[in-house]
Design a protein around this nucleic acid. Structure first.
Lengths: 222, 222
DNA sequence: CGAACGGCTATTGTCGACAATAGCCCATTT
DNA sequence: AAATGGGCTATTGTCGACAATAGCCGTTCG
């Protein structure tokens, strides 16, 4: 058994595979907002039973990506400006807590992960790939949440994150100036490294509220 | 058709009825923490199909009241001290946002609801019924969340609230001095009525963190 | 005597079929 | 012509049966 690495077996429950596929399709925009989904068609295409697909769809509904109206059908949610406001205010509140906790209680290795995530963001900003920057941005925020050691916070954050991703893709990502992005995130990192809980919380909240306002403002002209 | 009130028709989907029953049983302690639940037994007793019960159980899992381990079974969650800490820190963060929003954007009728809820709390405190006080306490907090006009916040709060209820019941509710309870909540109400967003947010957060610490402290001796 | 192996059982995971419902189209009536 | 009612269709809601799996227990082998 000294073969360096035997290929990882892909053995996941059918419903989570279906969930992953559907979520990816929705986030990447292959299934557009407002689109109608029917259980039979999906189960047909995926070669799964309706019950399995139904489970996945319910999960997606919980994540806020689809919505079910009884006896009628599933539709991919269409995020309004109000929704974006909700998402970013909620995100700000959640990350405020996360940043504070990460600064105070963050395990050393998790703090190191935050450093790495910031470095990845720096690299992405140099390359100027819009998509890569967006991903690294998400990654940095997520590393802070993970460092909070707060399982419910992580779970909660996951849901918000999915919805924001959908919106970012659908509105085709306003990417700010790379150096500006770094300037906005660096103080948060510094505050966490300095274990200044209150400052980290405050900076994180401000950052998210600012981003949310930019996002709603940029789209208000539609 | 001038009959004063025709009896309300109870026609809900079977799964939500099952969900309600199960949740109530868990919260009231009829099904104790750590108990094992099997789909067949429940569907048997309720006269429903396994699929329907399964849907309800998945919903309960989403609410954090039960947990599923694959191919093995459902169990009612048992909240640890860490869980209580998580719940109260999260609640503090969520209600912080809610109180701030209620102060700033709260519709007049929702603000009136908050007043009513506080009055109900006063009445409950006079009667000194531990259970009634706890319910009125929840009601006051919930009225603030409802006044935020933030649908995701409300949804998120519902989940946390259920879990806290379970714990309060299971640990048999430490009820503080009634007048103390009122003294703790009144400033929050005043700040909202004065539309002082920052103060309302701060007071609300402090209040919840304090309660959480009391709760974990009182149980640390177990 | 210990440990690995194989089957047994309880329970969830998955499936296809039938029932109930919402929304639509069209005929019918006023 | 407008409103009303009936039925038609697409889709979800519900159901019972079969498949897959984890955990247990006895058995067997070293």
């Amino acid at each position: 058994m000294d073969r360096t690495k035997l290929p990882k077996i892909e053995k996941m429950p059918a419903d989570v595979r279906a969930l992953g596929v559907l979520r990816a399709r929705i986030i990447e925009g292959a299934i557009p907002a407002g689109a109608r989904l029917t259980e039979v068609q999906i189960s047909d295409e995926m070669g799964l039973s309706r019950a399995t697909v139904r489970t996945a769809l319910h999960q997606l509904a919980q994540e806020g990506l689809v919505s079910l109206v009884p006896y009628t059908g599933w539709t991919v949610v269409k995020l309004s400006q109000q929704d974006i406001w909700e998402l970013y205010t909620l995100r700000a509140a959640v990350e405020r807590l996360a940043a504070g906790l990460a600064a105070t209680n963050g395990a050393a290795d998790r703090i190191a992960d935050i450093r790495k995530a910031f470095h990845a963001l720096e690299v992405a900003c140099e390359r100027k790939g819009a998509n890569e920057i967006a991903e690294a941005d998400f990654g940095f925020h997520k590393s802070i949440v993970d460092a909070s050691g707060h399982s419910r916070l992580c779970a909660q954050y996951g849901l918000i994150e999915h919805q924001i991703r959908v919106y970012i893709r659908s509105s085709d990502a306003l990417i700010a100036d790379p150096s500006e992005i770094l300037d906005q995130h660096r103080p948060i990192l510094d505050a966490i490294l300095a274990k200044d809980s209150a400052l980290a919380a405050e900076l994180s909240e401000e950052h998210n509220l600012r981003e949310g306002q930019k996002l709603t403002a940029s789209v208000s002209g539609l």
